[in-house]
Amino acid sequence: MPLWEKRRSALILAGLLAFHILLISLQVPRGAEKSVFERAVFFLFSPVPRVATGAVRGIVSVWNGYFDLRRVRGENQRLKREAFFLNQDVRFLEDRLHFYRSEAQLKESLAGFRGTIVPARVIGVDSANPHQSLIIDKGSLDGVGKDMAVCDMFGSLVGRTIDPVSLKETMVQLITDKDSSVSVVSVVDRLTGSMNGRSGPVCELRYVLASVAGGQPGEELLTTGYDKIYPPGIRVGRIQSLEKDEASPIFRRILVTPYFRFNTIDVVAVLTKAPGGER
């Protein structure tokens, strides 16, 4: 009997293990950058969450729509949609007012703002840790690309689009992911730093010098735009606590509670261009 027949199972296992070890060895030096093979797997299976969430939403929608007051529900949906867009508009109008003083500048900015929001539904969350990433139902066909800011329905920052971006699905890195970093500034005392995720519900504001005074719990943080990914002025979260960092005498240890909540991110807005049209 040939060796293949006698040791078939063991040989298949050895082959598969060697394949995985090779994959891991190739992935580790690449860091967060996705390989072609990983993108291919994502492309292949990413329509499934869309079908699954669509089916569940369809069943729930049929149930609610048929047995509840259909007219009232329809009107409620319409108002929610309007409120969603109005929230985004108000948010950006406020932000623009901070950054542009003259009326002419404001008009120019608003002209470029039209058509820059792509509303999207969340169809999946990270399979290993829900605080790391999301999958949305908009892709390159809808004008969504890599490194676009994503906000929730209240205009608070959720994260940014990352690879893989397929035709109708895109992965979003949440601001709570440990590899996420957002340049932020506090609204009152102008503490500027980098807000990093911890793959949990709370984030950390880093690189604020211990010698810098000010800052208090509850103070709001906005994006600065220095990172060239997130447009300036988007609400990010509130300072939860400030204390001395035992590990590093140079910087302060500041914890931040992000504004976005999982229960309010079934619908998000992808900012395909920064307000004013620049990207």
Binding site: I12, L16, L23, F42, D126, S127, N129
Partner: peptide, 29 residues
Amino acid sequence: GEVFGAVLGTVCGLTQDAFSLGVFGVAGL
């Protein structure tokens, strides 16, 4: 059985990795 289990484990694991920001191949292995 084991052969089908190993092949299924590979496909399922790599799919799980593709839907996560972890190292691609760890769940597969």
